[in-house]
Amino acid sequence: MINLHINGLRVSVDKGTTILEAAKFLGFPIPTLCHMEGLSPYGACRLCVVEIGEGPRARLVSSCTYPVEEGLKVRTASSRVVKARKMVLELLLASCPQSKVIQDLASAHQVSQQRFKQEHEDCILCGLCVRMCEEQMMAKAIGFRGRGERRSLGTPFDIKSEVCRLCGGCIYVCPACQLRCTYNQPEKAICGGCANLSPPCVEKEKFDDMMCYMDPCVVCEIKKD
């Protein structure tokens, strides 16, 4: 067992537990976006940041990838953590304002506006779909390509993958495209998206065989300038 302090509370947890798991178990809320039980921790969204250490040596780490250490002092909601989280949310909101998941998270953390240019990206590179495809569906049909600002997600050579079974797991976990299939106009996506009960792609023929990354139906695609 490892002894540590979370928000001043002395606790002991099993070795190998992450800070996120320990905090959740004890009831301290830590918001997450790219984390999902059953998938390996990835640390992409940085929403789960917590402060570890004390005084000038205190630093921010992603709790989903940080295993507990003996004597660790963790603060899950210090002013520094809250500030960092709000900034992360603001940036996420700027890159993908149409995402219901991100909107809800932002709302829950009192982020009601953001200062950056709205990009309306259809992907925030959280890697959930890649891990879902690899770890739960054992397919490895999609993956990351490129690097830096050219990093993108999809199949090799952008052609339909032979190993994809069209399970839909990637769409199921995607925080960016959960609302994607209901709108093609970004400004309308902010409000009332949940009221749209018949996504446009459903009316398309052969919808049953369509998968966003594999065989895009395009109807839902956000029109970018």
Binding site: A141, I142, F144, R145, P156, F157
Partner: peptide, 13 residues
């Protein structure tokens, strides 16, 4: 290896 991994490396560098 899966083609996804190889393609990822090939496009990374």
């Amino acid at each position: 290896r899966s083609l996804v991994d190889i393609y990822g490396v090939a496009t990374f560098y």
